[in-house]
Amino acid sequence: MEQVFTVGFLVAVLAAAIAAGSAILFACLGELLAERSGVLNLGVEGMMLIGALAGVAATLGTGNPWLGAGAAILAGAGMASIHALLAVGLKANQVVSGLALTLFGGGLSAFLGQRYVGLPLPASFGREPVPLLADLPLFGPILFRQDPLVYLSYALVPALWFFVYKTRAGLRLRALGERPEAADAMGIDVDRLRASYVVVGGALAGLGGAAISLGTNPGWTEGMTAGRGWIAVALVIFAGWNPARAALGAWLFGGVEAGQFRLQGAGVDISPFFLGMLPYLFTIVVLVLATRPGARHRLGAPAALGLPYQREERG
């Protein structure tokens, strides 16, 4: 067994972890924005599926994966706007609305995707090594021989971190999730901003879907996100609503996913079904650790998460 864990093997696993994690990362960052604004969206899985399908359909139509990614973003945003309308505009139950979105997205993508099943893509996001950086020892092969969407995720993480913690818009975003009535009193349009963040979150989830269907597993199969959307939801908690930690978590999950195939390939005899359970069990463990009594305050959960804001409702 020792010969399995060579440097080369580890580099390959880490590189694959980052590639596999990027889809979860996009979705997780999107959900993070929505939750920071105080809206829980359990529709990530559905939005990712629709995004994945839209990406495939647009790429098949245009031959250009970038247009595919754009279509995925629009499709995800469109799905999220249903949630924005129901959960923010009409103050409907956020849990049920999110679940409905996942059901709808799963059903609609399977229905519309029937004709795309198994079609090979004319083009997809392949690995494009970054000049110079790709030749760095260790870091080169791990970080800089990836597909362009992965590079986009590298840029997105610090950008969102800066946005959330260092800009005035980020300050307003945090206030929305923390104390919407305070934001309202300061002249911030709570519902409109919340709706926008839900839609942006959906756009990122859609892009996450495309990262799978145009990147790691090119082409369309029914239910191809395989629960990654749900992992993204769990990961937001794991990340403590912090974009930098979201990246760490997403790559960790990517690692479990990637390691599973590599270990099989290397002849390690663990049933793939048990390996497949690991990310889910791991999420539970993380969740339990993160919600240890007393840990909640340090976690930084937005205080108003999941609560619709209604100004004129009073006793």
Binding site: R174, A175, E178, R179, E181
Partner: peptide
């Protein structure tokens, strides 16, 4: 200035 202050506590 409201009775319940409109301040965001962690800020």
């Amino acid at each position: 200035v409201y009775q319940h202050f409109m301040l965001v506590e962690p800020f």
